[in-house]
Amino acid sequence: MNLVLKDIISVSLVLFSVIDILGSIPIIISMRKKGIKIQSRKASIVACIIMILFLFAGEKLLTLFGVDIQSFAVAGSIVLFLLGIEMILGIHIFKEEPESTSSSIVPIAFPLVAGAGALTTILSLKAQYDNVNIFAGIVINIILVFLVLKFSDLIERKLGSSGAEILRKVFGIILLAIAIKLFKENLIF
């Protein structure tokens, strides 16, 4: 288990694409306008804990159901592919979770940041990368999530709605390519 910079960057980009925190800025702004107080630090810490727990316990959960990591990676690649399609085409394949006014943990930490896509991706990445590199990628993304949550108003003003949409589409294409790569590498005939 070595820290490999190239792997950390790859994992970070994959998770960044899946989490799509920049694409979530309109959701975050909308929540703030509805009076929901977003606690950036608390939401980031909870999302980090969920993702790290899933990194280390997710495989055991799969074993409990008799599923190997390669099969999960193939299934995860299909989910990633669909998420990429959503991002590029602007359609909704997955059901949106209802918004909560109780706290920033739901829906910010879960499912916006540490949602099904991120958790599936973490387990899928285990087929290709060491846990230490995935862990580092998670931490890097949580730092980015914290910064985006903290400065979402400023980011929205700087990017504009069209800038955020362009970023979302670019990361959607990257996500499609990653999904196809994961599928090819883990499909066993």
Rank of each mutant, 00 (worst) to 15 (best):
I105D: 05
F16H: 10
V67W: 11
G160K: 05
I88S: 10
V132K: 12
V79T: 12
A109S: 15
S17Y: 00
I88V: 14
L112G: 06
F94S: 04
A109H: 06
L89Q: 12
E59S: 07
K34Y: 01
I28H: 02
A127V: 07
F189E: 03
F56E: 01
I78L: 15
I29W: 06
L62G: 02
A177Q: 06
F81Q: 09
D7H: 13
G84H: 04
G163H: 10
I91G: 01
K60R: 14
G66V: 08
A118F: 09
A164Q: 12
I142D: 02
Q128N: 14
F110I: 15
R157T: 10
I21S: 02
L144P: 05
F183M: 13
S40W: 05
Q70G: 08
I166C: 00
E99Q: 13
S30N: 13
F183G: 06
L55H: 02
L175N: 10
I174H: 09
I27N: 12
I93N: 12
V106L: 07
L3H: 05
A127E: 10
I27L: 14
I178D: 02
G23H: 05
F171I: 04
E185I: 09
G172E: 12
G117N: 11
A43T: 01
V148E: 07
S71Q: 14
P107T: 09
V4K: 14
V148D: 08
A127T: 04
G84K: 04
K150H: 02
I50F: 12
G76Q: 10
F110R: 02
E99P: 00
S44I: 03
I69K: 10
G76I: 04
E86N: 05
S24T: 06
F16W: 11
N133H: 08
L5P: 00
G90N: 06
I45V: 15
E165L: 14
A57T: 10
T121R: 12
F72H: 04
V148C: 09
T101C: 03
I166M: 09
L80H: 03
K169A: 08
V148F: 01
N186M: 11
H92G: 03
S24N: 15
G84N: 09
F65T: 00
V79W: 06
K150I: 00
V18P: 01
K184R: 11
S12T: 13
A57Y: 15
M1R: 07
L22P: 00
V11W: 02
I143K: 10
D20S: 14
I45L: 15
V67T: 13
L55S: 03
N2S: 14
F56M: 02
V106D: 02
A57F: 15
G160A: 02
I155L: 15
D7K: 08
T63C: 03
L125M: 14
L119S: 01
S30W: 03
I8T: 09
V74F: 09
K126F: 11
R157I: 13
L182N: 05
F171Q: 04
K126P: 11
S30D: 12
R41K: 11
L83W: 10
I174D: 00
S40H: 06
K158F: 13
I78V: 15
V170E: 08
I9D: 09
L62W: 05
L82G: 01
G35Y: 07
L53V: 03
G76H: 05
S103T: 15
L83F: 15
I29V: 06
G35R: 03
